[in-house]
Amino acid sequence: MSDNTITIDGQAVPFAPGQTIMEAAMAAGVYIPHLCHNPEFTPHGSCKLCTVTVNGRNAASCTMPAAPGMVVQNDTEELNANRRALTQMLFVEGNHVCPFCEKSGNCQLQAMGYFLGMMDPHYDQFYPPRDVDASHPDILLDLNRCILCELCVRASRDVDGKNVFGVTGRGPHTRITVNSASGRLGDTDMAVTDRAADVCPVGAILKKRHGFEVPIGQRTYDHKTIKDVHMEEAGK
């Protein structure tokens, strides 16, 4: 066994220098629940769903570089309970009405709730006032459902080269903002073919005229868990 090995829940997992714990785990077929992580983009470390225990301390596995001999706990009752609590917080901090959301069935936040056995929101609802921006002819921006993963920010900046999205405010007032004089999406050069238009893990950025296209029973997470889907995407 080379030095470049960590253990996750007792299983030896090799890593290449520079890889994060998440990258090494996914490459070895070990699933670590995550929402703001997308292997295509620079890690962001905001949702904390991917928190694991590394040599006795908790750390976000999507940003923590793997180092020789690390002992990592991942699939434990306690860590999964924390993940469920974080998911519940994401639900109550926004306005998530799945029954009429176009993303329902294809939504990663919802799928994470199912995966972690979330039966109720547990915390009191915030019902925050949030904006809906329908000014763009092909794209809808509904901040009621935004979980601030900043994948749209990363995609627009790093892939599309357009910097359409940014973040403003602090704490509970943090919001995704649109980079145009009017602040409206219709006044940007965003196109429906941009990577940023289909990177949103939830129903905050939607392509217009595609809602409810896929019937119930055939949607991404109707039969497969988010773990199944993420491992398939990783080729595992």
């Binding site: 109550v92 306005n95 009405v97 029954p99 109720d120 929101p121 609802q125 019902y127 925050p128 006032p129």
Partner: peptide, 12 residues
């Protein structure tokens, strides 16, 4: 019953 559901659309 669980999270308020559709009627909460009027909450803001």
């Amino acid at each position: 019953s669980v999270n308020g559901g559709v009627p909460t659309v009027r909450n803001n």
